[in-house]
Write a protein that binds this DNA or RNA. Structure first.
Lengths: 302, 302
DNA sequence: TAAAAATACTCCATAGGTATTTTAT
DNA sequence: ATAAAATACCTATGGAGTATTTTTA
């Protein structure tokens, strides 16, 4: 005698409803002896009679009645679970835990969530905003299913898919609007304002300046693009921001926006996930949604 | 592929906790391939991957996480059910639905319930007060597990167990206290007051009067012993009541209580249940409890 | 006597074990 | 190269079927 089995519960539930071994067996699509044996084993297993047998009609014992109620509850839960699973056939389901870096989140996350809710009504979305390294860590330790970051990230266990490029534009104080576009090398001398350590965008901007900036002591740091923009407006220096941040961040600030000379600086935004994730097909679908969000309204601007 | 099995849920739950096929298998006391196969079949059954396999570590998919939560809930319910059953090994459990006739209930039911609650703390007591015929009907149709009635009831499917006899005593107006004890035959002429049709006690009293009373038009009926006692006190007639009702019913009434001449009238109170009830042993225990209640404080009175 | 459940026995499906291969780090 | 899961194959358990007996109303 091992453990309670689903079969026993199903058979007993049918018996409790029909009060008749033959009809219960019919409902379960087995023969009467098969059901009888299972019920008997169930009673032996739990050590208490559940059924009063008699020739014409059977009854449940008082204990059997209580047992039947609980059994029914359990079977209902199991049925719900099966439905929950089947309604999800091959689809993404349950939770979708995804990360997004802070230099993208403010501009795309809300649209993305809106779109995702429309495409996957049952999905439990769990967004998380953090710097790239944190996201990669979370991804590899399975606290996230996917993340939106700047590529490449070059982790052997991580798959990366490029979605779109975004240009960096130069922000200068409004007073400098008519000055010529500086070369990348000159930016540090103009007091290039950067995000604080740890933001990938900082590194991307730095590398654009050929790394010279690291030897420059005039640059300052801010913890968000909004802060940087305000500092530029105050005449403290210049900065680079992703083009998609322009509308939101420069709306009321006294700054001038300029494209750098070719080759224009840019970064690649992409989605990453564990290579071992078996739902690659669904993740590609989601990546397409994000690509659509990231590129809409952009045509003609860059 | 048939239906979700308990085994699959147990294996998956272990896997979700250990995140390791080998250790999950160990916990389930099976080999790793056995568990792997079951998990794979579970995934096929529900049509969605639950687990991300990789060489060093495995993870659950977002859907797998949700599935694991529900699985755990179900297994907890099942475990509770098993505990509920085992805590009850061969004991009476769940509901105990019992009936009791109105001419016994007021005097013994409260003590009986108190005692039952002490002896069977987990038992869900469902008492029901009704006339004998109703109780027998309910018993045979399995709406009751047992009943306290006056014997015999002589139903072939019903087992009956005598518990104790109770004497009927004569109640006359207080003014008649010194008159001699009448013979049974004379009671109708003294205006014998009876319970209304359907009470077994009415029939028992009538049969004591040798059935002559049925041809007598002077008797009156009341719907409760209390009513009869009040009518006797008002001088309307005489009545017979069970001895155990004396204390409660005659406390403040102006009536005289007399024992009839030998052979004193009496009835047998007993417990009845379906012969098919498999818990006879437990029912006998309960019957003993009722016998104790019914005979306590009675010694020396009859 | 008849309806219904239990029992006896046989068979087959399937769960599980062992040995091995595949995979990913 | 190694740890871990998947696969292949075989065995044994146990669940289900058929035929029959027992029970009881």
């Amino acid at each position: 005698m091992t453990n309670l089995s689903m079969k026993q519960l199903r058979y007993f539930d049918a018996l409790a409803r029909h009060r008749h071994f033959g009809r219960a067996a019919e409902e379960c699509a087995v023969t009467q002896p098969a059901l009888s044996v299972q019920i008997k084993e169930l009673e032996e297993l739990i050590g208490t009679p559940l059924v009063e047998r008699s020739a014409r009609q059977i009854h449940l014992t008082g204990f059997g009645l209580s047992f039947a109620e609980r059994t029914r509850d359990i079977l209902r839960s199991v049925h719900d679970l099966e439905e929950f699973a089947r309604s999800n056939n091959g689809q993404l389901g349950g939770q979708f835990r995804f990360g997004i870096i802070p230099t993208v989140a403010p501009y795309l996350l809300s649209s993305f969530i809106t779109e995702m809710m429309a495409c996957y009504p049952g999905l439990d979305l769990r967004p998380r905003e953090a710097k790239t390294q944190i996201l990669i860590q979370d991804l590899m330790e399975s606290r996230l299913d996917a993340a939106i970051v700047a590529l490449p990230i070059s982790e052997p266990t991580i798959r990366e898919l490029a979605l779109f490029d975004e240009e960096f534009v130069l922000l200068r104080p409004a007073s400098e609007v008519d000055k010529p576009i500086p070369s990348p090398d000159l930016l540090p001398e103009m007091r290039l304002l950067l995000l604080e350590e740890g933001h990938c965008f900082r590194d991307q901007a730095l590398s654009y300046c050929s790394g010279k900036a690291s030897s420059t002591r005039t640059l300052m740091e801010g913890s968000s693009l909004t802060t940087l923009v305000q500092m530029v407006a105050a005449g403290i220096g210049v900065t680079l921001i992703p083009e998609m941040a322009v509308d939101l961040e420069t709306g009321s600030a006294k700054v001038s926006v300029s494209h750098m000379a070719d080759p224009r600086p840019s970064r690649t935004i992409g989605m990453i996930w564990r290579k071992s994730n078996p739902l690659e097909e669904q993740l590609l679908e989601i990546a397409e949604i994000f690509r659509k969000i990231g590129t809409s309204g952009k045509t003609g601007m860059s």
